[in-house]
Design a protein around this nucleic acid. Structure first.
Lengths: 132, 132
DNA sequence: TGTAAACTCTATAGCAACTATAGAGTCAAG
DNA sequence: CTTGACTCTATAGTTGCTATAGAGTTTACA
């Protein structure tokens, strides 16, 4: 199968697939006589693995590490757990950050009623204010 | 005051201040004989405004729009409200996304007990699996 | 007065994970 | 045999900075 078909089947764009290859997440594809990339079902599986990891917001570096680990099926899977635990922590931290941000924004938003001029606007005042 | 002092007082790095100037968020600073940037308290206030907006995760484009609006103090402040409302919505959407992601990650994490090989690892299996 | 340290300048490259474009080549159908 | 759809490489753009190189300026001190 050529890259266009793989793109359709996987839901990744053609450029993204080429990008993953350049970055070493996919091994270099076989080539046709005319130098077109050719893929088999194993390549497709590998791409889907990458895609699933990315949909979980793992970084490409982490995906690479996981792919390397799957090449050593007999080794202990602590490292897999570590990568996931670290990532879960990151997600939790980011959620907390955003929730904090959200309450700040709601507070600021409450400073402005309708039909004011910019000069009177409590939001602008809040943004100009010294504190927090 | 020169850029280094402004950097210290504002908590922005020297490069960031120069970057903001290049991007049009700060007006071109006056220059000394030796071509060093010189700032007064108005420049400092403007920088602090930008900094406060950024701490709320507004984009530089939005900050620019807010700055433009503060130049027209007599006009209605609907646009200020719009920018903020849109941003609040974005933050809420992102929180929801991350919470969804978090439960997926927790689910996946639960698939692996201790002391397994990569081959047996439920996380890797989960990442390879067909469905979401 | 000399000089070394500390500061500033511009221009450029790097980060992450793609996306978009230009310009050229390949292939299948009518 | 030509048109259109596809593919190729290489390069630039996105966001909001950060880091570097190489040069010039200023300040402090001996």
């Amino acid at each position: 199968m050529k890259i266009g078909e793989l793109a359709k089947r996987s839901g990744c764009s053609v450029q993204t697939i080429r990008y993953y290859e350049r970055e070493g997440l996919l091994s270099s594809a076989a080539r046709s006589e005319g130098n077109f990339r050719l893929y088999d079902k194993y390549a497709e599986e590998r791409l889907m693995f990458v895609k699933r990891c990315r949909s979980l917001d793992l970084t490409l570096v982490e995906v690479k590490q996981l792919l390397t680990l799957t090449q050593e099926p007999g080794s202990a899977c602590d490292k897999v757990n570590q990568i996931l635990d670290l990532h879960i922590q990151r997600v939790e931290d980011r959620i907390a950050e955003l929730q904090d941000l959200h309450s700040q924004l709601i507070g600021l938003r409450g400073h402005c009623a309708e039909n004011r001029t910019v000069e009177q606007c409590g939001i602008i005042r809040g943004l100009k204010a010294e504190g927090g």
